[in-house]
């Protein structure tokens, strides 16, 4: 079924099915952490998650209909935001903690060992608290994640060729489907019409905070790489270089 003919319920069910499996770091964590050991664990986990993220994006109805150039651009723009939203979702029921994976959980204070990361941890914890206050539902979470992906490059590129224009139009229609799905998910919560509108506003406004933390995180990781605190390799290196060079 094409996404344009899917009901919002069907669309959400497809993106729920696309959710990546739980991922484990699978390392013997030696505590207390050093700056290098914590950065290495964080980047190892990010690299594993990135591979699953590509698989997730491919399962979003309509994503593979976009041009390959658009697919690459979207993923390279949003990967850290997607990782951070996933982290917030895992951490939403654990105030004061960041649940990077079931076998890699950090307290705010543990961020002290990495220069400059505490500020990012605090921003992540603050956004997570906001999601906790809003009692974010799983259906809403999957819609927000798809919105981040599809919205990530909308204002940084303008289509030049007919093919690019076609892909952009497809992207806009796909975003319509995701917004419809989020509106539908909110409508199931038994709120008044006004409360539903407010909730939509509050949830989407949080996306600008996630973009902000992601930019901070990207700068931090680039600095750590430049200072040789951590060796960044594979897919993560490709994504990071893509961001730092653009």
């Amino acid at each position: 079924t094409h996404h344009s003919t899917m009901s919002p319920e069907e669309f959400i069910s497809r993106i729920m099915e696309a959710e990546p499996p739980e991922i484990y770091l699978m390392e013997d964590l030696k505590k207390p952490f050093t700056e290098a050991s914590m950065m290495m664990s964080l980047t190892n986990l990010a690299d594993k998650e990135l591979v699953l993220m590509i698989s997730w994006a491919k399962k979003i109805p309509g994503f593979l209909e976009l041009s390959l150039t658009d697919q690459i651009h979207l993923l390279k723009c949003c990967w850290l935001e997607i990782l951070m939203l996933g982290l917030m979702w895992r951490s939403v029921d654990h105030p004061g903690k960041l649940i990077f994976s079931p076998d890699f959980k950090l307290n705010r204070e543990e961020g002290q060992c990495v220069e400059g990361i505490m500020e990012i941890f605090d921003m992540l914890l603050a956004a997570t608290s906001r999601f906790r206050e809003l009692k974010l539902q799983r259906e809403e979470y999957v819609c927000l994640k798809a919105m981040i992906l599809l919205n990530s490059n909308l204002c940084t590129s303008s289509p030049q060729t007919a093919e690019e224009l076609e892909s952009r139009n497809k992207l806009l229609r796909l975003l319509d489907s995701v917004i419809d799905a989020l509106v539908w998910a909110i409508s199931k919560l038994g709120l008044s019409t006004q409360q539903q509108t407010l909730r939509l506003g509050h949830l989407t406004m949080l996306l600008s905070h996630i973009r902000h933390v992601s930019n901070k995180g990207m700068d931090h990781l680039s600095t750590m790489k430049r200072k040789n605190v951590v060796l960044v390799y594979d897919l993560l290196l490709e994504m990071l270089d893509a961001n730092t060079s653009s």
Partner: peptide
């Protein structure tokens, strides 16, 4: 450098029909 060359792994994962889990 072309976009595909710059993003070799990403490009491969997007084009490959094999599960990225297997590739990882």
């Amino acid at each position: 450098t072309s976009l595909k060359e710059k993003h070799k792994i990403l490009h491969q994962l997007l084009q490959n029909s094999t599960s990225p889990v297997d590739l990882a």
